[in-house]
Amino acid sequence: GAKVLACPLNSCPVAPASRSSQEVWESFSQCFTPAVKEVVEFAKSIPGFQSLSQHDQVMLLKSGTFQVLMVRFCSLFDPKERTVTFLNGQSYSLASLRALGMGSLLDAMFDFSEKLGYLGLEPDEMALFMAVVLVSADRSGIVEVGAVEQLQENLIKALRSLITSRRPDDSTLFPKLLLRLPDLRTLNNHHSDKLLAFRIDP
């Protein structure tokens, strides 16, 4: 009867059976709300983001917040040790989380974290990549598509310029980075499905 919400932003992956699903969700919500607010603050700091209509800002954040968080919290996934560190500071093995029914999503998250970590981005490169991730989010519901596309183009140019100026001998890094964008979209869909499944049938 224990309820499982094995997201590393949760304080603990397993809640006691005595707690109602609503209580478990509310507790989890309190854990992820500060992280979501930080993504919004990050978005506001992206040059040009606040010039978009408020509607389009919300649309990009709705589809991009998890993707930004996935990049930001990649370091919680240790591909070498096959562990995930939760907000309570405790590390859980992939095997134990798999046993809780989190198999394929976690496998995909480990795969993503490993690929991104392998690229060895500097903090400012990572921040610019997160900006590209956010502005490259699903366009459904966007009204001023041209403005979003222009902002995306500017950010991609800035990221390419930063990376190629630092690593003039490595022409593969930038395209490898862009290849992570579809991975993130797939992860986003999978993650949403998992959370919705909990909301419907914990």
């Binding site: 919500s29 709300t33 979501v36 607010k37 919004v40 603050e41 506001k44 606040q50 209509s53 408020q54 509607h55 800002q57 919300v58 954040l61 709705k62 589809s63 917040t65 009204v143 949403s192 499905d193 959370l195 919705l196 909301r199 419907i200």
Partner: peptide, 27 residues
């Protein structure tokens, strides 16, 4: 459940966080 962000409460958090500093703009 065609809009997961709304159903998970994400949209509400995002709107409130944005409204902290944003003035309402005409759509």
């Amino acid at each position: 459940f065609s809009d997961p962000a709304s159903n998970l409460g994400l949209e509400d958090i995002i709107r409130k966080a944005l409204m902290g500093n944003l003035e309402e703009k005409p759509e």
